[in-house]
Design a binder for these strands. Structure first.
Lengths: 246, 246
DNA sequence: TCAACTATGTAAACACCGTTCACTGAAGTC
DNA sequence: GACTTCAGTGAACGGTGTTTACATAGTTGA
């Protein structure tokens, strides 16, 4: 099984070390502190050696963002595991609260992955086009899709979907259906109408908006305890889907 | 009137030149490109000379953020001037669309002011505590306050305000009332209840969320034309206030 | 086994960067 | 006209990303 040659094992090991150090620097002192020389210094090698692993600092940051997405997805998945399989509302709560908790605990990582102007950093993972770009998106949107699909009969305010969005939403609809089906829950377009897809998107806007405002401290006034505000927003988002609790 | 000495005039002029160049570098090549040496080079002086004007690069970026806030406020104010005084809905549309347009046209500035982890950059202006932190906030939130105040009778879904937010919201309520009154429109707490203040905050979450997602390209799928989505969201936000159009 | 090859590291150098310090010279003050 | 204030300079320190030529350890095949 240990097919890898000695050199390959060593390479993989240093590759992990590099990103681990980069991650530590990011957490401790922010994006600007993630310098090739600092990483190399910490690893006991010289900076140019890093070019055997990454094309440039930018490339390293890109892979770092990938790692962060993967870790976030893992964390959200773990939180999901602690909720009963059939309690879909609870799953949505778990994922959304998990996202907020993660963002507040890892502001630098959040800024790198979710608030970078470089387009390269956002789209994590090697997924095809027409796919949810990053591993985090996979977790969050799959749960949302399952929630909506499991309660499709309840809500039907379909008129407010802008016509010019139909094409984009239809693509996303297929992605969501594929993701949910891949988990063994069969869904078709009838159970996940465009209005539901649109509502998921709007929910993402609000979830992201609240979390980013909290992380960056851009609420219009000092919020002493933002958690009830977040939970209240979640309750409203879920409530708008047409059911309250059971 | 030209009380200023020759030296004072020159100083003010250089100060403006510095920030203008810093701004140009930010726009053209992003935050990391705003270096003291590049600014000085462009101005035909040496880098240490900049320390006669700013304590550090960080300090310069802070003042730059102030400038950006002021410019944004000016632009939003100008857009506001093109809407009839009594068309408050139109004013909200103007400010929100103006904010989105500005953010998309100035992504680097947006990232600096609205998505920086450094707390110092967000709170622009020399305003006291218990005040809206930046000049942009002043414009946006004042319009929102006026809108709500002018239609307070229409909506009253007051129960969904988390109790633990009452204190914070009350402070913000006073700020909003003060801002609206300062424009000559008398309002009191009865016309601007906490539920309305809460709704304004939630609207800011959605406005910010959409704009930031668009600027950073973090929508879960490729949105071919995000503008109708934005307008649809605005219509819904305004609709939730209890009136549709007239 | 040993030569050929490849992958991984090094040292030196280049052109940048923020920041500090001693110094110059012009503008303002009495 | 002497004195002070202050914008600007040049040199220096330690830091940065990146490229280049070079060494050497690991792997491979005859």
């Amino acid at each position: 099984m240990t097919e890898a040659t000695r050199r390959e094992r060593l390479r993989a090991e240093t590759e992990r070390d590099i990103r681990r150090q980069a991650r530590a620097l990011l957490v401790a002192h922010g994006r600007d502190a993630v310098t090739l020389r600092a990483i190399a210094r910490e690893l006991g090698i010289t900076a140019p050696a890093l070019y055997r692993y990454y094309d440039s600092r930018e490339d390293l940051l890109h892979h770092l963002a990938d790692d962060i997405c993967a870790d976030l997805a893992t964390e959200l998945d773990a939180g999901l595991g602690r909720v009963p399989e059939d309690d879909v509302t609870g799953q949505v709560y778990a994922v959304c609260r998990g996202f907020r908790r993660w963002a507040l605990a890892h502001p630098q990582e959040f800024a790198l992955v979710f608030a970078s102007t470089e387009t390269a950093l956002g789209a994590c993972g090697p997924d095809d086009r027409h796919q949810v770009g990053d591993q985090f998106g996979r977790v969050f949107l799959e749960v949302a899709g399952r929630l909506i699909a499991s309660h499709s009969a309840h809500h039907d305010h379909g008129d407010d979907v802008p016509g010019s969005l139909h094409e984009d939403l239809a693509v996303f609809q297929q992605v969501l259906i594929g993701a949910v089906n891949a988990r063994g829950v069969p869904v078709d377009a009838g159970e996940l109408p465009l209005s539901a897809v649109y509502h998921i998107t709007q929910s993402w806007v609000r979830l992201y908006g609240h979390v980013a405002l909290e992380v960056f401290g851009r609420f219009p006034f000092a919020v002493t305890n933002p958690e009830p505000m977040f939970d209240s927003m979640l309750a409203q988002i879920i409530g708008e889907m047409g059911f309250t609790d059971d």
